[in-house]
Design a protein around this nucleic acid. Structure first.
Length: 484
RNA sequence: GCGGGAAUAGCUCAAUCGGUAGAGCGUCAGCUUCCCAAGCUGAAGGUCGCGGGUUCGAUUCCCGUUUCCCGCUCCA
């Protein structure tokens, strides 16, 4: 996965994060205690935005496809899951820093290179000795320390600096560990899942047996995942606790690339439908897919901080199911009646970051423009994801306008998230709703009391139209579905 | 994780050469105004990021720590 930070042009990104806090989209976690790194909370507007994204995804992935079912697996899973998936090995790297060059290396790889060098110089005996000590160190109780002393005693130097100025070897475990009291065995440590996909794979047979789906079919899930990032920065783009929207699509071996192409375009279109212009999206093809994949591509969005991945579409082969079959001893096969054969399905994965999608929508929606010489800040959300759908105001706080406005608010409240406001000048109230991203504002004026209907103000065009009272719900409905 | 910078009201910032802090905006209460914020009045809100040290006294000086920003580094 390529992560190339671009030079920050980022007053704009800062402005967006500031607005998020000011208006209640996103707060830093545990702020009153000084904050917890790379962890954020969603405020009243943020939670609505996030819920809307989640619902749009579920609608498009689960309801819109008769062969896709949803699940909601636990965050805690049996430790063997992560052995089977390869995460235990892949997430435990012993790392060491060269203080001179400020570069970081895998400690085990430094030693392996050292051994290779000895061999190529013909110092076979010496290489064997080091190899033996290396193997011992890897199995040592304090493996990082053992590797460290081996690097020191062999006087292995920094490959880039030639210096001999190392930090300690530290093990960066990307998975969060926690304890389960009742778990049998020598170790009660278990992990908070680093991805939601495995919850789908381990339930593959359960879903197959209970939901009458037939291959090809998909299992969808939205849920939290946890990664102990070494460097976690850039607001909610990279968090230690984050939420994924994943769908694993199970297909006949040999048809995976067809499914891969299908989901590539489906996922791209979904982002466009949420209001992201295609010009701000691009494909990023993995030249060297991960060990389990035969094809992999990311959808990237052009954030103010540069092009960054928001979703991956990966053809994962039968790697995961095969591994679970091997580690669990349970069959992960499907019986094909037509041919009478059994096979382990291939899997095409769509894996989108929910928080990243939210951040993308925030960045895309944010704009400043000028209305009659006055600047305004607008969150131009698509109606489908806007946290507040309609603001309702009495033009004046008298003559029965507030009562009338409240009645209209209550009528809309059961279907839409509406916001009633009678404070301050009408212009100020419009601007407040602009910052919250409400697509429509309804204003009750004297003519409304005379039976002339209400005015509906469009956030983006600032146009106002008069709508009869009894037509308001239908008008709002149409607007929210994009008809207006 | 390393190096550099920063941290004062919700936000943007000021002041105190060491003697417990102000403004604008925002928020709240009211007034005014029939349609695009910065009209009027009033109020709330800060142990000056946190902990320790020096001092009669620390927001100010020193040390540590946390968080944020920038650069590097890492990432299935």
């Amino acid at each position: 996965m390529a992560f190339k930070p671009q030079p920050m042009s980022s007053t704009r990104f800062d402005e967006i994060t500031a607005l998020c806090k000011r208006r209640g989209f996103v707060f830093q976690s545990s702020e009153i205690y000084g904050g917890l790194g790379a962890t954020y909370d969603y405020g009243p507007l943020g939670v609505e935005l996030k819920r809307n994204v989640r619902e749009q995804w579920w609608r498009d992935m689960v309801y819109a496809n008769k062969n896709i079912e949803g699940i909601d697996a636990a965050i805690l899973m049996h430790p063997k899951v992560w052995k089977a998936s390869g995460h235990v090995d892949a997430f435990h790297d012993p790392l060491i820093d060269d203080k001179a060059s400020k570069r970081r290396y895998r400690a085990d790889q430094l030693i392996e290179q050292h051994i290779d060098r000895l061999r190529s110089k013909g110092k076979t005996e010496r290489a064997d000795t080091v190899q033996k000590r290396f193997t011992e160190a890897l199995n040592a109780e304090d493996m990082p320390k053992a590797l460290h002393s081996l690097i020191l005693s062999e006087e292995i130097r920094g490959p880039d600096s030639g210096a001999f100025d190392w930090t300690d070897v530290r093990q960066f475990n990307m998975m969060f560990e926690t304890k389960v009291g009742a778990l049998a065995g020598e170790d009660s440590s278990i992990y908070l899942r680093p991805e939601t996909a495995q919850g789908i794979f381990v339930n593959f047979q359960n879903v197959l047996a209970t939901s009458r789906v037939q291959i090809p079919f998909g299992i969808a899930q939205i849920g939290k995942a946890f990664r102990n990032e070494i460097v976690a920065r850039q607001f909610i783009f990279r968090m230690r606790e984050f939420e994924q929207m994943e769908m694993q699509y199970f297909v006949q071996p040999g048809t995976q690339l067809e499914a891969y192409e299908l989901w590539r375009s489906r996922r791209w279109d979904w982002h466009v439908r949420n209001g992201i212009p295609a010009s701000k999206l691009r494909w990023h093809v993995h030249e060297k897919p991960a060990h389990y994949a035969d094809a992999a591509v990311d959808i990237q969005y052009e954030f103010p901080i540069g092009w960054q991945e928001i979703e991956g579409i990966h053809s994962r082969t039968d790697y995961d199911l095969s591994r679970h079959q091997e580690y669990s001893g349970k069959k992960m096969q499907i019986f094909d009646q037509a041919s009478g054969s059994r096979f382990i399905p291939y899997v095409v994965e769509t894996s989108a970051g929910l928080d990243r999608t939210v951040l993308m929508l925030l960045c895309e929606a944010y704009r400043k423009d000028v209305v009659e010489g006055r600047s305004r800040t607008v969150m131009a959300f698509a109606p489908s994801v806007a946290p507040i759908k309609v603001g309702v105001f009495p033009l004046l706080r008298k003559d029965g306008m507030p009562e009338r406005a409240r009645a209209i608010t209550d009528a809309l409240r059961c279907e839409w998230n509406v916001f009633y406001d009678e404070k301050g000048s009408i212009g100020k109230r419009y601007r407040r709703m602009d910052e919250a991203g409400a697509p429509l504002c309804i204003t009750i004026d004297r003519d409304t009391l005379e039976g002339e209907g209400v005015t509906v103000r469009n956030r983006d065009t600032l146009e106002q139209v008069r709508v009869a009272d009894d037509q308001v719900p239908a008008f709002v409905s149409d607007a929210m579905r994009g008809a207006a």
